[in-house]
Amino acid sequence: MPLENVRHIVLVLSGKGGVGKSSITTQLALTLSLQGHSVGVLDVDLTGPSIPRFFGIEGKKVRQAPGGWVPVDVHEAQQLKTRHTNGVADGETAAAAPSEEGQKTGGLSCMSLGFILSNRGDAVIWRGPKKTAMVRQFLTDVLWPELDFLLIDTPPGTSDEHISLLETLLKQTTSSARPNQLAGAVVVTTPQAISISDVKKELNFCKKTGVRVLGVVENMAGFVCPNCSECCNIFSKGGGEVMARDFEVPFLGSVPIDPAFVMLIEEGVRPRYPKGTVVEGKAMVEREDGVEGDKEGLLVEKYRECSLAPVFEGIVRRLVEDVRSRD
């Protein structure tokens, strides 16, 4: 059976586009990996795959092996060195698996249509049936290594990709011996009413299809001006929490906008912050004036210094506990 190497499958859904599904998927994957789990990411957004870009592996191609496709490795399981700075790493290692050599980090691999296209600018102009077939193939023909978590990043909406994805997954998981394999869905929203109204549709979609909602993440909640440190709620605030309460699903947390994270993804620059920035009780690495941020190192290792890392640490810990408690 395909997916037999995968212990838990988590969907990342949102009715609205551009709320940060891929960005949240990326950060969930990085954080899970930092906590020592092995993670796979499957991108089923066929007409706009962004996962390769997020992990900085755009040039990579999928290899064909007997029996299926080999997903692209972002990094292998390894021990990350603990940084001896005032960075976030200290706190995190204490939380994850503390060891002499460093932080135990799980492997991370990805699969996306972006790896198959010959030219990154090419449009994938497919009608529903072709998309359905591709989604099925992604679920059955990818040779995942042993995974603790498989995150599935979806396109916006509730249409062909979603229907096919759930049809295939529900058929597989209900017939298998592990009914908890499809752990549930993380629903992403931004705080504005416009986004909330679309995401409510997605929550109803989960209800109708019987997928458990693991929780709601509110993304783009607030932006801290790097100059004056005043927090401005560009897309208003609190909408996600209210919606979660209305639908009686857990609220996992608010994620602010962090330009340093955008920089990390877009240019691979190590996140640096103004002096005295403290997030969730942890001091961030200071920005030194006139020094260009360095680009060396693995994405996962640089991400530890991002101000969003502690936020996700909390979200992921809750998720993992929740999923494990149902095993």
Binding site: R127, T158, D160, S197, K201, N204, F205
Partner: peptide
């Protein structure tokens, strides 16, 4: 209902 999901395939 305005929160109802429209779960439709392409056709």
């Amino acid at each position: 209902g305005r929160d109802d999901a429209v779960i439709w395939r392409g056709a």
